[in-house]
Each structure stands twice: as structure tokens, then as C-alpha cells.
């Protein structure tokens, strides 16, 4: 695993999130995601049977894995881990649209953009490198989304992960995701 200058990740607070989709829509505007495709999505998971039910709601996207199968399986080097932010990115010019990354992603976070390359959440690379929040974090009415540098122990995300109980998605795949659900 490469060491990167920063290690940006995302938490979603399942207690706060109401699953409204404002994040998905804000992402669409910010990143010009074509209608019908999506870099983010909302999950609602209900367990139990009437009337003893439990529900978990969260908004999800690319997990920006440290051990990213999409990067390992990309034959052209188009998918890579960005040295500066530690996020997973796609170099459009190198992408041939072969879909090896899509097949290997346990989170189903990628899609083929109509212009032919594979696209997904960039963690608003253009914004976070300018010191701004991601579009989804900024818009979220419930402040459920927090993005930050996991290398910085003083960042809000690091503090939340020390203070709160959290879960990660499909860790058995060995992906070392940088996406956390506060529960």
C-alpha cells in the first residue's frame, strides 16, 4: 500500500441521515452526472417483522479503498490512488471502458459514462484540494456526511471515529474502505 500525503475518507451518520437524496442530487449538479446514473445512492435497510422492526438509513458512494480492487484490476492504469489525497480516481484518457473495475468493485460504485469511460465518486477532489467540503457534505440537511483527513488526528472525521461506534461495508473483501457508518 502506498503512503499518501493525506488520507481522505467519509463518514455517514446513520442516526442523522433520513435518506432524502439531497446528496445525490447535489453531486449530480456539481459533477455533471448524467440523469439516470449516480455516484451516490441511498440505502434503507429494515430488519425484523411487524411490529418489532429496526431500520438503518445511509447514503453511500465509492469507499475510496486503501486496498482498492478496481485499481489492482485496471489493465491500463486508469484507476489509481491519488498521491495527495489518498482517494481513488479515474484518469479518463487512459480508460478504455473495459469494466474490469466495475466487476471487481464490491460496492457497485462505478458506472460507464455515456462518453465511454468509467466514472464514480471523486470525493469532490477538485473541492477538497481547494479546502472546501464535498458537494454532498455541504448540502446535507442533517449534517450526516463528514469528509476529512484520516491522517490528521484533529480532523472532525478522526474525532468522530474515536468518539462514536462505527461500521464498515464488506470488509471481508479485504478492501480497507475509507467509508464509515456511524451507528
Amino acid at each position: 500500500m502506498t503512503r499518501t500525503a493525506h488520507k481522505y475518507g467519509m463518514v455517514v451518520d446513520t442516526i442523522a441521515c433520513v435518506g432524502c437524496s439531497a446528496c445525490t442530487l447535489a453531486c449530480r449538479s456539481e459533477n455533471e452526472v448524467p440523469e439516470g446514473l449516480s455516484r451516490r445512492w441511498v440505502n434503507q435497510e429494515t430488519r425484523g417483522s411487524f411490529p418489532d422492526l429496526k431500520m438503518k438509513i445511509w447514503s453511500e458512494s465509492c469507499q475510496h479503498c486503501e486496498n482498492a480492487p478496481c485499481v489492482k484490476n485496471c489493465p491500463t492504469g486508469a484507476s489509481f490512488i491519488d498521491d495527495f489525497t489518498g482517494t481513488v480516481q479515474v484518469e479518463r484518457d487512459l480508460c478504455t471502458g473495459c469494466k474490469a473495475c466495475m466487476a471487481s468493485c464490491p460496492y457497485d460504485a462505478r458506472y460507464i459514462h455515456p462518453t465511454g469511460y468509467v466514472d464514480k465518486c471523486t470525493l469532490c477532489h477538485h473541492r477538497i484540494t481547494g479546502g472546501l467540503e464535498t458537494a454532498c457534505e455541504t448540502v446535507c440537511p442533517t449534517s450526516a456526511i463528514v469528509v476529512g483527513d484520516l491522517n490528521d488526528p484533529g480532523s472532525e472525521i478522526s474525532q468522530l471515529l474515536r468518539k462514536r461506534k462505527f461500521e464498515q461495508r464488506r470488509t471481508a473483501a479485504g478492501t480497507r474502505p475509507k467509508f464509515f457508518l456511524l451507528v
Binding site: 432524502c20 437524496s21 439531497a22 445525490t24 442530487l25 447535489a26 449538479s29 455541504t138 448540502v139 446535507c140 440537511p141 449534517s143
Partner: peptide, 11 residues
Amino acid sequence: GRLCPRGVGGI
């Protein structure tokens, strides 16, 4: 500074 999905989707 925040907005609901309908507000974002006003476009």
C-alpha cells in the same frame, strides 16, 4: 447553507 433534495433539483 444546506438544502433539501427538491431545492437542489429545482433545475
